[in-house]
Write a protein that binds this DNA or RNA. Structure first.
Lengths: 369, 369
DNA sequence: ACTGCGAGGTAAACTGTTTTAACTGATTCG
DNA sequence: CGAATCAGTTAAAACAGTTTACCTCGCAGT
């Protein structure tokens, strides 16, 4: 057997009678120094072998590598990061919504980020940006204290003023599904304008003219985009986008139900409702079904996001599909590029598409224009 | 050589004259050594101030603290961890289900873990245990390379053999919502047996006897618990738990729909369906509604988990509430205790309760027993 | 005056890497 | 034949903290 297997004879002096008893020594993990000693080379050589430095000869490389494999050496990443200045970790910053991760929307994006990060050799830490997290400047602290090399910011809105601190590009940051013209932050977003157009065009095509809007979170730039395009589309079809035709659904099922109720109370003659996300659409669906209003026969509903469960709503939901997983992947990829020195600004726009299901039909008592 | 923006140049004139080193350093962040120099004490002293070591006098402590605040010093965590042996990071390991984080179930638990971890001063990294992640022993590597001090394992089943490597308790690990008698791993779980009893008792009380079961993932111990209790309850009420009365719904909406179809095809006379999670229950609901079978008039449905959207299903779903957020919190807390040296085995059981909504009613053509 | 002691502080060793400048031989060139 | 080049390796200096063993007072006890 290999009596070399006692890798960490911490002092050479220690080789008493027991030649190779791997479990006798104080169980300190094997270090670069131990490997160097065993391989009879310097620590610098071992380090270079590890990093595939071409200055090391083929022969030495193989010799050292064999020892490394034999003793199962694993470089201590803390030490590596300490001297290399790179932590190989990125953070995902999520706002402090109660139970944030339970949201399928964030889940998709996170999945994308994690998958890509793993492939690029990065670990991902999760940060919830509660008010006192921001107040204590944690989002900067994770950089200063070398927790991370970069951050992906999700679910942020105009009131999240802390983002301005990333405007100077001193710390790599990537915003997902929102953008900030005033600070010029790097971002990766779905094409919400195009998505809204797809939904509205479809409804208009079906003959709907009186279309209610269940919006939410106008403090999010991309959410405002939806509202704006909705208005543009109505106007282009000779309809005034009345304020009474819309209500805030707060991105929740309950909010969506209330918004539907409010809109219908003011305009019993709407033939379609467009919700800015699927959760609200499902809430609206729920409300209508209680009121025995038939969807889509009496009212059509279109959602936004294409969550998994939307296909199983009752009736299944027509909605705009968002490539959230891909957004996550791309955000991560671009972030890592920036960390590695690429200076370009990032402003990616990913395409959406309409998914037609059962919640939409021709406008009642009308023919297609 | 740029003498602009020397790290400590931020401070006011007074110190500059005295101790501010003439050494014009580049824009390196301020280190313990810089603080020591400015405060005219040794680095050891500053370190001890940082760690509230009682050997430091009140006066010195305050003096040093002032300098620290003034220059905005932030200890480098990599260096701290390197010498202290603790990384203050834990990992959440999630199986490789496609788009895992998009699942509200995991989301809830993750939320709980993150919140508690933050309070305890720990960061959380996210790891997806894909097959090659396990094959390359990444789950051990994150310990050996000092990425983390401990792990929380979620969504694991009997086939996840890698868990056996945590059986020796060399590395702190906590299993969530599953348990492994063979390896005696620490775990925090919901009381699935009691939860199932609550659901079954309720159905039986409503007069149901022919109850179909939409189960899933029998390779998960806690999922088998549900099946077992279902059988026990039927038997206790004089019913043979026929194999044809149940079908695997794979924890998905689509699977739930198919399972409902299969059970009804074999037993058109079932009066209730019990689904092992809400997603499958919603899938079943969807199937029944397509078939124009009225819920709860003709068939009652009970779910499990109490996901947010279950309240907005159509009809809203009677289900067993699981304290997933609390499970996450507790798992994190116990894990940190173990990291900090508490040797006790952990085996926590958290209570569930039934949430009655609209998807259940008295069994058709029967009176309560 | 002399020892003993403890409080408060410091120098130096230590954590485990990367990196740089310097050092060998051996080969090639003038 | 001596100098220049070069490939391969090494010692030592970072990196930024923690920890330990030792030092230096001031003061109480004898």
């Amino acid at each position: 057997m290999d009596n070399l297997a006692a890798p960490v004879g911490i002092n050479d002096s220690s080789d008493d009678a027991t030649a190779a008893s791997p479990s006798v020594r104080p169980d300190r993990p094997v270090s670069l120094r131990d490997v160097a000693k065993l391989a009879q080379v310097s620590v610098a050589t071992v380090s270079m072998v590890l990093n595939d430095n071409p200055r090391i000869s083929r022969a030495t490389h193989m010799h050292v590598q064999r020892i490394i494999d034999k003793v199962g050496y694993r470089p201590n990443r803390l030490a590596q990061s300490l001297s290399s200045k790179y932590t190989q970790v990125i953070a995902i910053i999520i706002p402090a919504l109660r139970h944030a991760f339970a949201d399928a929307y964030f889940g998709e994006v996170i999945s994308g980020v994690c998958d890509r990060a793993g492939k690029l050799g990065y670990k991902v830490i999760l940060e919830q940006a509660k008010p006192d997290y921001i107040k204590s400047q944690q989002h900067v602290e994770i950089f200063e204290r070398r927790y991370v090399d970069g951050v992906v910011c999700m679910g942020v809105n105009d009131r999240h003023h802390f983002l301005s601190e990333f405007a100077d590009r001193r710390y790599p940051a990537m915003v997902v599904d929102n953008y900030f013209p005033q600070w010029g932050l790097d971002h990766v977003v779905c094409d919400y304008r195009a998505g809204t157009e797809q939904a509205m065009n479809y409804l208009l095509q079906l003959g709907h003219r009186k279309i209610g809007l269940i919006y939410a979170a106008p403090e999010i730039r991309t959410a405002r985009d939806k509202i704006e395009v909705y208005e543009e589309k109505l106007r282009a079809n000779g309809q005034e986008p009345l304020a009474t035709l819309r209500a805030d659904g707060k991105f929740t099922e309950a909010g969506g139900a209330e918004a539907a109720e409010a809109i219908l109370a003011r305009h019993p003659d709407v033939t379609a409702l467009f919700a800015a996300n699927d959760k609200m659409a499902i809430g609206a669906l729920h409300y209508l079904s209680r009121k025995r209003i038939k969807v889509p026969e009496q009212i059509s509903i279109v959602g936004f996001d294409d969550m998994q469960q939307s296909a199983f709503a009752n009736p299944s939901l027509t909605t705009v599909h968002l490539p959230l997983y891909e957004v996550g992947q791309l955000a991560c990829e671009r972030l890592v590029e920036r960390i590695r020195g690429k200076p370009d600004r990032v402003a990616e726009l990913l395409p959406t598409h309409l998914v037609v299901r059962e919640s939409t039909a021709m406008a009642a008592g009308r023919v297609t224009a």
